[in-house]
């Protein structure tokens, strides 16, 4: 048995153990089902939500917010990060500034965002975009600023045009660090959208989780949590697969 198989088995075993504990604890009546519902009930609620279509409205809204916020973060983070990285002066000025902003819990600005953009998806998109922007911009700056100078010298000696220099040297050299930023940005954008939905919103998966928690309808709440977990796993797998393909492995 090779190492990959072993670690996969341990990971699967861990998930199975958590589920098994969940089943055991709830079926013995040890815990009040209002605090922790039986997984069977949760699955039933999940089936119901899918069958009557009530899931789709919230799922679509969350995905819509996520796609727009993340796209905005990727585009603005990449462009601004690249622009900053082009001169040493602007890197010295803006890199610490962005790093300082990144260290602030941006969530403190969320009430302000709601004040400006309302309770609808707009405030989630702005807030999620802000969260995603900083790691992407910072890693883009680092990626371009740390390109091996000797490679650029070599390109110059072989007569590379500015475009060739960018396409063949700068961009591929910066990309691995940028991809780390894209992953971090993605996780933060997703987290902040679910989080802001659960703080102040009208719809979305995060909104629904809090809604059912307050109504003490925990099986429904758990059904939405399961959806978020599955969504996170799925999106993370996609991003990781893209990253792997980029490496040309």
């Amino acid at each position: 048995m090779n190492q990959t198989t072993t670690s996969r088995l341990i990971q699967a075993g861990f998930v199975a153990a958590v589920l098994l504990t969940w089943v055991l604890v709830t079926s013995t009546g040890l815990i009040n089902p209002i605090f922790l519902p039986n997984p069977v009930d949760v699955m039933e609620e999940l089936g119901q939500m899918i069958a009557d279509g009530s899931l789709w409205a919230d799922l679509t809204i969350t995905l819509f917010e996520l796609v727009l916020a993340y796209t905005a973060a990727v585009v603005s983070g990449t462009l601004i990060g690249f622009a900053v990285s082009t001169t040493r002066w602007s890197t010295r000025v803006f890199e610490p500034l962005f790093a300082a902003f990144f260290a602030i819990p941006i969530i403190v600005f969320y009430p302000l965002t709601v004040l400006y953009f309302g309770l609808g998806p707009e405030s989630k998109i702005v807030h999620g975009g802000m969260f995603g922007f900083f790691p992407i911009a910072l890693n883009t700056i680092t990626g371009f600023a740390t390109v091996d100078r000797r490679l650029l010298l070599l390109a110059a000696s072989m007569g590379a045009s500015p475009k060739q220099r960018f396409v063949r040297i700068l961009f591929p050299a910066a990309l691995p660090i940028m991809i780390t930023g894209y992953r971090m940005g993605f996780i933060l954008t997703f987290l902040s959208i679910i989080g802001s939905e659960s703080i102040a919103s009208l719809a979305g998966l995060g909104h629904r989780i809090v809604w059912y928690a307050e109504a003490l309808e925990t099986p429904k709440m758990f059904a939405y949590i399961v959806i978020v977990v599955l969504l996170a796993t799925l999106l993370n797998t996609i991003v990781a697969a893209l990253e792997l393909r980029r490496r040309g492995a």
């Binding site: 000797r150 490679l151 010298l153 070599l154 000696s157 072989m158 063949r168 040297i169 591929p172 990309l175």
Partner: peptide, 12 residues
């Protein structure tokens, strides 16, 4: 044509 001290091959 130039040849440098350390390998200046593109790793990717």
């Amino acid at each position: 044509a130039y040849m440098f001290q350390e390998s200046t091959l593109l790793p990717w």
